[in-house]
């Protein structure tokens, strides 16, 4: 470690502090990553117990599959819509919470409760809640004379978007709220002396300070929305036809049919599609003093 150019004491502590991370990456991440890439280059499937190396053929098969690109298109639209809506609503909700009011502690927990339900269970609960014959929502709507179909072919996509917003706005909220806690009170006080309204001062002060949090939240939420699986799969199975097939469902179907090579290759393509967002996020996190 002494070979580092700068004889800074940081040179040693960085390795010590970074050791757990580096050890974990080496022990747990490198092999699966490498093996996964290896599988992506094999014609491995259940029907083919002795796979051979076929290079980029799987990637080519995925890239040439029009249904893959339809899945990508649906996924991109889904991701952009839910991420932006959730970020905005989550931020507004955090602003609303960012003050004293009775019952705050309990309500904070209640607000993030939806995030605590495993998506696999949440999908089933949505399926029950929205069931036309035994679900609560259609029954209540029909009391008000609204005989609308929640899963009809016109309604299903907006429905899925709404459900995602319902479950994941609290995620954005939690991160924004935690971020706001590090904005010193003094800043707000200074702003209110100037006579600016709460919402205005809140926006003026918190938005710039919370930009890194917003970027990370957008990244985490965006990537997770891009990889959404359980709720959509449980509710629609990707249908009707492939109208709601997202990339995760595409990959899962390949995987559960035993087409491991294709599933791995499709995963690689998805990663490549998303890769350009990484530098954008990481740049935001870079230490301003060092860059």
């Amino acid at each position: 470690m002494s070979q580092l150019v700068r004889p800074n004491r940081a040179s040693r502590s960085r390795w010590v502090l970074g050791a757990p991370l580096l050890i974990f990456l080496a022990a747990v991440v490198l092999f699966p990553l490498g093996y996964g890439l290896f599988v992506a280059g094999q014609d491995r499937s259940l029907l083919n117990p002795d796979p051979s190396w076929i290079g980029l053929d799987n990637i080519a098969a995925v890239v040439q599959d029009s249904s893959f690109w339809r899945a990508v298109r649906f996924t991109v639209i889904y991701t952009v819509v839910v991420t932006s809506v959730e970020l905005i609503l989550g931020f507004l909700l955090a602003l609303l919470f960012n003050r004293r009011f009775p019952g705050k502690r309990l309500l904070l927990s209640l607000t993030i409760l939806p995030v605590m339900i495993a998506p696999a269970l949440m999908g089933i609960m949505f399926r029950l809640l929205l069931n036309q014959d035994i679900g609560l929502v259609p029954s209540v709507l029909s009391v008000f004379g609204w005989e609308i179909s929640l899963f009809g072919t016109d309604a299903v996509v907006p429905m899925l978007l709404l459900l995602d917003v319902l479950q994941w706005t609290p995620f954005a909220f939690l991160l924004f709220y935690a971020g706001m806690q590090s904005v010193p009170d003094e800043l707000y006080e200074a702003a209110s002396i100037d006579g600016s309204g709460y919402w205005r001062s809140a926006l003026a002060i918190t938005v710039p300070l919370l930009l890194p949090v917003a970027v990370v939240t957008a990244f985490l939420r965006g990537v997770d929305a891009f990889r959404t699986f359980d709720v959509v799969y449980v509710l629609t199975g990707g249908g009707p036809g492939d109208y709601t097939t997202n990339v995760s469902i595409y990959i899962y179907k390949a995987f559960s049919s035993g087409n491991f090579g294709i599933a791995a290759a499709a995963s690689v393509v998805v990663c490549l599609i998303l890769l350009p967002v990484v530098p954008v996020v990481v740049r935001r996190l870079a230490d301003p003093a060092r860059s």
Binding site: N131, Q132, D133, S149, G152, P240
Partner: peptide
């Protein structure tokens, strides 16, 4: 039901058991 586009075994059971 228009929701049949997303129906399988459990939804069909529910349609029958609920009398709809």
């Amino acid at each position: 039901s228009p929701d049949s586009s997303q129906a399988e075994f459990p939804e069909t059971q529910a349609a029958l058991t609920s009398g709809s």
